[in-house]
Write a protein that binds this DNA or RNA. Structure first.
Length: 507
RNA sequence: UCCUUCUUAGCUCAGCUGGUUAGAGCACAUGACUGUUAAUCAUGGGGUCCCUGGUUCGAGCCCAGGAGAGGGAGCCA
């Protein structure tokens, strides 16, 4: 049915063909209708002239509304002014499905409204670009692991026991018994690595955290590789290769998509540089401002940022006032009023974001200054430290008390566990958590008791130590957090087609 | 669970120390305009000011309670 795609128009210059798609925009003037058609592969302006199509079809063209589906037949003509470089000069058309009062207008909208209309919001150019980048990321993840001899092997989604406490698990009914939706496939990954050597899981993960932040989802996709005969340093090498490979793939093949969302790719190109590897001790000193990074101090740079935010607030407020006064001057043209009003709307949006930051930064400063050695890094601490770097950083050797029970105790210093977190730059924070696994059965049993976990549920896991245990390591990558960082999105909710988060189950 | 900001037209927002009939822009409808790219012009329709109760001669505005949303903390990928 659909023979020609907008992305291929260049090879049909001068020919007549039929495009099928949706009207993403329409402009009208006497005797002319301009329809911007999108077909999922691109956008193309189609011109419908009354002289060419005649009275009856022209009347039909005027009835095309935003997001109506249409079939347009015409001549492919080169036109430098158009975004795809081509336009269609229509000589026949048909409305396939009408669209009355399409709710998403060509203007700024609030998040709540857009989330309620997520099924339609996905049609916008920006969301189209994000979803294509997400797809590329997923594809290149498989490509990377498959090319290195990893086998994809998935963990179950129903689990019979709470592996890391029940408070953040979704409970379901499994033939009359309680079952929980998986919050990690990691333990199963270890079992699978003992049979195939190097494996990775790629599936959904569920966490019932009542978190309302820009980094949290209740349902997200996680990639969890697990490798036999790997120590924490092999693991860090792999993480670095892996992230570099994915980012490079996106830079190489998503140029158009990155341009659409306005992503500054210079920062992403730094991915070729080695990732700094900091021990927990170093990370803490940096956060507290006791150690500088590249001549930058965390506390000072955060204070400067606060000042910059406050200055910007002043500027934005002044501009809003100026434009509001302008609108009120008598005799101003209607079009100019509309334009200024649109600018004011944008500025107000920016202002409320800035004011949010103005409230948050002092809290973060406080938390950085008063950071207590031995604690886990909080969201704000991650933000503080990653702002000082332009590549992802790896923090390893954590106090064992704050990390999961299955992490290997550092043989050189038993205070530490061999866990590693990867923090994305530009303030994005944790995207990967992983480490080398404990192989000593006795230490594991102690830890399971310490965490007050039900021993019988871990008998199978302990078997992995009883029958030919080997050094092994792995990590978990949150897909949505990676997409969010690569696209520099303000919130993870835009990185997945239909986000599930606290307070959001529809659409 | 805690802290914080918010809720006025389909959408984005004004609405001054409480005072007649609540406004703008966009969108929509009708008409005018033969090349527009969120900027043409005119006219028009459109409101349970989140809900409940209170104070007051009078509440969109003040007070109390509730609901919903945004951001942050905790927790995490």
């Amino acid at each position: 049915m659909q023979k020609y795609l907008i992305k291929d128009l260049a090879s049909y210059e001068g020919q007549e063909l039929t495009l099928l798609g949706w009207a993403s925009n329409k402009r009208e003037s006497k005797g002319l209708v301009f329809v911007v058609l999108r077909d999922g592969t691109g956008w193309c302006q189609c011109v419908i002239s009354q002289d060419t199509v005649g009275e009856a079809l022209f009347e039909e063209a005027r009835k095309i509304t935003l997001e109506a589906s249409v079939s347009l037949t015409g001549l492919v003509v080169k036109d430098e002014r158009q975004m795809g470089g081509f336009e269609l000069q229509v000589n026949a058309l048909e409305i396939i499905g009408e669209s009355l009062d399409y709710p998403i207008a060509k203007k700024e909208h609030g998040v709540d409204f857009l989330m309620d209309k997520r099924h339609l919001w996905l049609r916008s150019q920006r969301q189209w670009a994000i979803m294509r980048i997400r797809n590329k990321i997923i594809f290149s993840i498989h490509e990377f692991f498959q090319s290195k001899g990893f086998v994809q092997m998935d963990a179950p989604l129903f689990t019979g026991n709470a592996c890391e406490g029940t408070s953040n698990l979704f409970e379901t009914d499994f033939y009359g018994d309680p079952a929980y939706l998986s919050q990690s496939g990691q333990l199963y990954g270890e079992a699978m690595a003992m049979t195939l050597g190097k494996i990775y899981t790629f599936g959904p993960t569920f966490r019932a955290e009542k978190s309302k932040t820009r980094r949290h989802l209740s349902e997200f996709w996680m990639i969890e590789p697990e490798m036999a005969f790997y120590d924490i340093f092999d693991n860090m090498d792999l993480i670095e290769d892996f992230l570099r490979s994915v980012v490079t793939a996106v830079l190489d093949s998503c140029e158009k998509e990155l341009a659409i969302i306005g992503r500054d790719t210079e920062i992403l190109k730094n991915i070729i540089k080695p990732f700094p590897r900091l021990t927990y001790d170093e990370a803490v000193r940096i956060i507290k401002g006791e150690q500088d990074v590249n001549g930058q101090n965390s506390i000072v740079s955060l204070e400067n940022e606060l000042k910059a935010v406050q200055e910007r607030i002043g500027l934005v407020q002044a501009e809003i006032a100026e434009r509001e006064a302008k609108i009120k001057t008598p005799g101003m043209k209607k079009g100019e009023i509309g334009f200024n009003q649109a600018q004011i709307d944008k500025l107000k949006q920016e202002l409320s974001d800035l004011q949010e930051q103005e409230r948050n930064i002092p809290q973060w400063l406080n938390s950085a200054r008063n950071f207590e050695y031995g604690n886990d890094l909080g969201g704000s601490d991650e933000t503080v430290i990653t702002r000082l770097f332009d590549v992802p950083i790896m923090v390893y050797n954590w106090p064992h008390e704050v990390k999961a029970f299955y992490l290997k105790r550092d043989p050189e210093n038993s205070k530490f566990a061999r866990g590693v977190d990867v923090l994305a730059p530009e303030g994005y924070g944790e995207i990967v958590g992983g480490g080398e696994r404990e192989t000593n059965e006795q230490l594991l049993i102690e830890k399971i008791n310490e965490h007050q976990l039900p021993m019988e549920a871990f008998e199978w896991y302990l078997d992995l130590r009883r029958y030919g245990t080997v050094p092994h390591a792995g990590f978990g990558l949150g897909l949505e957090r990676l997409v969010t960082w690569l696209c520099k999105l303000p919130h993870v909710r835009e990185s997945i087609p239909f986000p599930r988060m606290y307070g959001r189950l529809l659409p």
